[in-house]
Design a protein around this nucleic acid. Structure first.
Lengths: 348, 348
DNA sequence: CTGAAAGCGCTTACAG
DNA sequence: CTGAAAGCGCTTACAG
């Protein structure tokens, strides 16, 4: 009755800078703030008519619950974090998207962080993120085991693309892919194989071990060739050592290296696959743009991202004593051989 | 004196589930919570010795300020949102990274959202994000002009890769790129050019208009060929229409289309560039994997992402009455022609 | 089914 | 330079 606008049709929200709060709705409907809160978020505990009035008024005022206030009270931010070493690494695209998708479906928000491959920066970033988030996915983390465990003790944490005892991990079934690759190459008659290594990382070590074991079991010779960097340039630069090693097939740690090697072969007129067969890994975007197109191992990164967030959601429910059983069943995370043009019969 | 552990060396923080608050620090140091808050965030307003004690204790307890509490009070979440239509679109990689980088440098956090190219979903997502964020970057938004303006009225908002009167926009200087491409092709003797169109979007329309005007000015014939979808498949499928049009050079809306066309040419034994010259746009990851490598226009997406966040930061300072002048100068956002193997002299 | 009250952790005038 | 007090918007036992 005091400073209300004369025009009764004008809603208060329109000439207000601050967004409306539950108190505005309470005032407008005549109910208490408690009832408004319940009508909006625990609709079962409120009369149907009351609920209707309140929800309509809320919609009319353009009410949105203040996430900070809720978070302060409940300790839940409605947010997950995802930390990757390199946002532009094509390997992570599908993973990020998968994670974003599941997060969104759960009505939550995904916060993205990048560590630029620096383990120290990763610890800082992870620690910071963890304070403002309900759970964290660490992708291909380079953190020391103990650091990971310490972080995992603070809040739900999932390790994507790395396994660590006592910490929830989502890892593709790489063994199947590696075995398939070696068998493919051996089946084509190759008897001398090289592995072009990646960085010092859990994934790279595990891969080499797998390849080594499989090759030995198949009774073909296997050597490791250190590749300066896991880039196209790195792959390019390794051609001399590949040729010197006298192998006829090369398994690269990743597609980027394989593509670099492919380019070097073209430049040096080394026929692929006639003289040298090349296999990549990951099936990144663009790996079928090359001539010949790259034979590679497809890792289901999308499902890994989805799965990681699902595990996070599962952990949250668990903490609340909710039903854990409703956790969606794991998508299969098996690697798959994709045969294209860069592999062929061994030269005779 | 009650349930304290006997071992005096054990810090309280260690056996506590909840993270420490300023009250824990206050208790430990004997100062009031107000002083702790000041020592931590307004170091100038507190005695040097006091500040030292408090900061040390905070570090020892592993204190981190509760972002929700601060946000509730100040209305600032320390967070920016970035909304893209498709996270996996390689065009956005560098943009996302650039935005993430500047956001991180400013001590803030980037929240990522994806709209799957759906304008309706985009409005919902943008509106939701806007409530929990200090500012929002909309990338290549498909929203109606008025919707964008309404959102911009709520909080600082920047439009990346789209221009709209009255809303802060960060757009590359596409004209330079288009002119350079047309001149490049005309310089090679081509007299009949086609533009393979993209989606119905601001960017696509602007591009076509530019190409059209330039071609007319150079007195070469220009036609528009509708491409079903802006994908490799779309490019592939358009080869028949390209051949039927009788042109000798094709400017594709983007690299994906160009790469598809390139693949179709290889399959159909249409020599590139001898019979047909092909130009892409954007210089996405992998556009140099093809044979021949793709001639294209490089758009500085990284700087666009950085710039967008800088503008957001600038808007925030403005609102606070801070010094706006310190806004970093714009990086040049000019497009640049990248000549590779897919363009050559016109057939005679 | 509904309301009054307390409190989440922090910041910020206001005093001193 | 430092402290007591109020309040940001919301949720949740506790009564009724």
């Amino acid at each position: 009755v005091t400073d209300q606008p004369v025009d009764g049709r004008q809603t208060p929200a329109l000439d207000r800078q601050q967004p409306p709060t539950i108190y505005d709705i309470a005032r407008a409907t005549g109910f208490s703030a408690s009832t408004v809160s319940r009508a909006l978020h625990k609709p079962g505990r409120v009369g149907a008519a009351t609920r209707g009035t309140i929800q309509e008024t809320a919609a009319a005022l353009g009410y949105r619950t203040n996430t900070s206030a809720r978070a302060l009270l409940t300790g839940r931010t409605g947010t997950f974090g995802l930390l990757v070493s390199d946002i532009t690494n094509p390997v992570f695209f599908d993973l990020i998207r998968g994670a974003e998708q599941v997060t969104g479906q759960a009505g939550r928000t995904l916060v993205l962080g990048e560590t630029r491959g620096d383990a120290e920066l990763e610890l800082t970033a992870a620690s910071r993120l963890l304070t403002s988030v309900d759970g964290l996915v660490l992708v291909a983390s380079r953190l020391a085991d103990d650091d990971v465990r310490r972080l995992a003790a603070r809040k739900p944490l999932v390790l994507a693309n790395r396994a660590l005892d006592g910490v929830t991990s989502v890892v593709p079934d790489a063994a199947a892919g590696v075995t398939a690759v070696v068998d493919h190459v051996v089946g084509l008659g190759h008897r001398a194989i090289a592995f072009l290594t990646g960085p010092d990382s859990w994934v790279s070590d595990a891969r080499w071990q797998q390849i080594f074991d499989t090759a030995v079991a198949r009774d073909v010779s296997i050597v490791e060739i250190r590749c300066g960097s896991t880039t196209v340039e790195g792959g390019r630069g390794s051609l001399p050592r590949v040729l010197a090693a006298g192998v006829t097939a090369v398994l690269a740690y990743n597609d980027l290296i394989a593509i670099g090697l492919l380019q070097a072969c073209r430049d040096e007129a080394v026929a692929v696959p006639e003289r040298l067969s090349i296999v990549g890994h990951d099936d990144i975007f663009g790996s079928d743009f090359t001539t010949p197109a790259l034979t590679t191992v497809r890792i289901p990164f999308g499902p890994i991202g989805e799965q990681s967030v699902r595990r996070l959601l599962g952990r949250l429910d668990e903490n609340e004593g909710d039903d854990v059983g409703r956790l969606a069943p794991s998508a299969p995370l098996g690697a798959e051989l994709v045969v294209r043009g860069s592999t062929g019969p061994a030269p005779t």
